[in-house]
Nucleic acid binder design. Sequence first.
DNA 1: CTTGACAAAGAACATATGTTCCGGCTATAC
DNA 2: GTATAGCCGGAACATATGTTCTTTGTCAAG
Lengths: 215, 215
Amino acid sequence: MKLRPRQKRILEFIQEYIDEHDYPPTIREIGAAVGISSTSVVNYNLERLEEMKLIERNREVSRGLRLVKPKDKRGGERVREIPLYGKIAAGKPIPIPDDPETVAENIAVPASLLPTSGEAFALRVEGHSMIDALVNDGDIIVVRSQPEVENGQMAVVEVLEPAELAGVTLKRFYRRDDKIELRPDNPDPSYQPFWVEAEHVRVYGRVESVLRKYS
Amino acid sequence: MKLRPRQKRILEFIQEYIDEHDYPPTIREIGAAVGISSTSVVNYNLERLEEMKLIERNREVSRGLRLVKPKDKRGGERVREIPLYGKIAAGKPIPIPDDPETVAENIAVPASLLPTSGEAFALRVEGHSMIDALVNDGDIIVVRSQPEVENGQMAVVEVLEPAELAGVTLKRFYRRDDKIELRPDNPDPSYQPFWVEAEHVRVYGRVESVLRKYS
DNA sequence: CTTGACAAAGAACATATGTTCCGGCTATAC
DNA sequence: GTATAGCCGGAACATATGTTCTTTGTCAAG
């Protein structure tokens, strides 16, 4: 079966309408846009399109139609939304937010910057302690959730004790037996590594990618 | 204003419904799902949600509602595809590809990392000359196409003459009268700035953002 | 030419769906 | 207590919207 020009215009209009409104048009709106005065003619053509498997319809439901292969703007799996949980101190640890469940916002990340497997989340870096690792104040890091990381990797960890260091921080991670060294990556001597008991550290994940926007 | 549990359930249901049907639910469908017998109560709560800027409504239109920040698969303008033209030397300029029109591939970039206006494209950085600007070998830069840049900005420029420097390169850009200094950002003395006649330089654009993926 | 399938227009119809109004309930403030 | 505001339920209402029917015109096949 062949797609007639009027039917092609209907398809295009549906796509445009959904792009603009986030919901499909009515039969009458389609008619007005394509230049069809009768609702029955629109209905007729929608039936043809349905036969051709180009759209799906839910009968007796207003705006009950969808495109079978929507020309999705975000091209399938090329982008994912991950939660942006807030700020992380690259310098001194900062306390965990009271309610970690409340996600401030989501951020869209290209699939090419995401881990190939596993969950991921994002944080905004505050401070300059990882400057030598090319991570700066204001950058957004994408973190792959995982309970362990290898030595030398950039990791997001929570320090439980001692109290004066407690909080979540971004550091290079080195494990020696049951002690863990958290090392900043800044030549400035005001940034010093510190050691913590392994049992007092919880690893959230390792840094997978970095996003930076220049104002 | 506080989000009441019933309103939260309404939001969640709208999201689920859209994910499943590709169009929004009716007031009555929301009521049935959330356990509200009266359409007026659903309407009332939708008005509250609209006040809180959590949804938008088109009155007198069936299913005329949308989530303001839809976790929707087709999240509108949140992502754009831009061409990834290939590699650029952060160190020595590299020749322009014979056919700049042939785009090797496209890359999806979140709108938050794109310039608010104008065209953009992406390049993969090769070399370490911009290491102090936190741009490293392998990073992808997003470039806003523009014919001029301000002094000190990181810019993608093409050098036409002299022949031994000809090519496209990534440098900090400084203009003094009719001469242009192209300055790398690496303390290593093997990276040296150089001066070129302004008429022998073509500016492609300035660096808008940086993406880095750790293997 | 006649026939039948297809496309279309217009009108009438059925109902799906948003809107409005009224009353009741609960909690808090006065 | 009373008063007020926020929230809810129910029903009547208006209309937005899909469905169906009849009629007309076109075009290719017989």
